[in-house]
Amino acid sequence: MSDTLVQVEHLQQYFPAGGYGKNKKYIQAVDDVSFTIERGETLGLVGESGCGKTTTGRTLLRLYEPTGGRFIYDGDVIFDVEKKIKVDMLPYRKRMQIVFQDPYASLDPRMTVGDIIGEAIDVHKMAANKKERYDIIIEMLRRVGLNSEHANRYPHEFSGGQRQRVGIARALAVNPEFIVCDEPISALDVSIQAQVINMFEDLQEQMGLTYLFIAHDLSAVKHISNRIGVMYLGRMVELADSYELITRPLHPYTKSLISAIPIADPRKARENRRIVLEGDVPSPLNPPSGCRFRTRCPYADETCAAAAPEWKEIEKGHFAACHHIDKCN
């Protein structure tokens, strides 16, 4: 059995944005993204709003139909756009799940928590009878720090942190192997975020889970992730071991992100020079030619405008896409 559970090759997701024929326009949400995730690993995915993190996760689960690329899950080709391969996703829904960003919008307000969790159990025929179904629901609630009394309540009776726990319990109900965590802490109070991250880590250890953990907060991502990928305007710009990426970033965009992490110690904060990027993120409807970061990069030149940088392994396990790695390090 291979240790590689998730293998993504040249993933592409374009959304139609008006126009007809040759004038038809597309939002290039994800463009030529490749990565792997090992069994039992957590890969963090970070970047600014609109960079394509959430679209990447949802496309892998075929919540969006991919425009291009290939996704191999545990040796099975889930989709290969070029070869026109797309498997029936229902059997894989038990193995791959998602925890959504907004716990207020992702739970049906007309259903009790027990029915929300039980729906997935029913669809995938995970229980032989009502008692077994009930036992699974209560066990899932227990795993996320809730109890049997919560099963008969409705979502509006819970706090944001508790709702997100219900969303996590729903994902766990079918005993998955791989979970896309789509910014699961961004809508929560800071005081609750650490509790939820610790719970994710405990569940991973108990159930042997593999995560794609999408977030804005680099501090949270570095805590939970084995490796971190950085996206900018639909493309991956750097990928490395978590500690390596934070301490030795190679790409100028990654350096600017890391410099923005708040530092509690005032003395160290004074020593930390924040890298402020000029300009705004370009539109994915009309991205810059060549390197997409070049309009905000202090090292950009004609080479950057002429061609997109190659995605390559700069050091063992440390990948980046930049024409001037030597110049900016």
Rank of each mutant, 00 (worst) to 15 (best):
T4I: 12
L5T: 01
Q7P: 05
Q7N: 05
E9P: 01
H10M: 14
H10D: 15
Q12A: 06
F15W: 00
F15G: 00
G18Q: 00
G19N: 03
N23T: 06
K25A: 00
K25R: 10
Y26Q: 01
A29E: 00
D31M: 01
F35G: 01
T36N: 04
T36D: 02
E38M: 05
E38D: 04
R39P: 09
L43K: 05
G44P: 06
L45K: 02
L45C: 03
V46H: 02
G47P: 00
E48L: 00
S49I: 00
C51M: 02
C51S: 10
T54G: 01
T56Q: 01
L61K: 14
E65M: 12
G68M: 00
R70Y: 01
I72Y: 01
Y73P: 08
D76H: 15
D76V: 15
V77Y: 02
F79H: 11
E82C: 07
K84H: 14
K84P: 12
V87D: 09
D88P: 08
D88L: 09
Y92A: 13
I98A: 13
F100G: 03
Q101T: 10
S106N: 10
L107N: 14
L107Q: 07
I116N: 06
I117S: 07
E119L: 07
I121S: 13
V123K: 06
K125N: 14
A128R: 15
R133T: 12
R133I: 13
I136S: 11
I137D: 08
E139L: 06
M140G: 11
L141Q: 06
L146A: 07
L146C: 08
S148Q: 15
E149M: 12
R153L: 13
Y154A: 07
H156W: 09
E157H: 15
E157N: 11
G160N: 08
G161S: 06
R170I: 11
P176M: 03
E177H: 09
F178M: 04
E183R: 03
S186C: 00
V196W: 04
L203H: 09
M207E: 13
I214A: 00
L218R: 13
S219M: 05
H223G: 05
I224S: 05
I224E: 03
I224G: 04
S225V: 06
I228N: 07
G229R: 06
R235H: 14
M236Y: 09
V237M: 14
L239A: 03
L239T: 09
L239K: 03
Y243K: 14
L250K: 13
H251K: 10
P252Q: 11
I261V: 10
P262N: 07
I263Y: 08
A264I: 13
K268Q: 13
R274C: 11
R274A: 06
I275R: 12
V276Q: 15
V281F: 04
L285F: 00
N286I: 00
S289Y: 04
S289N: 05
R296L: 05
Y299W: 03
Y299V: 02
A300D: 12
A305K: 07
A306S: 13
E310P: 12
W311C: 13
K312T: 12
I314A: 14
E315R: 15
E315P: 05
K316M: 11
G317T: 06
F319C: 12
C322K: 08
H324Y: 11
H324A: 07
I325Q: 10
I325F: 03
D326K: 08
D326A: 12
C328Q: 14
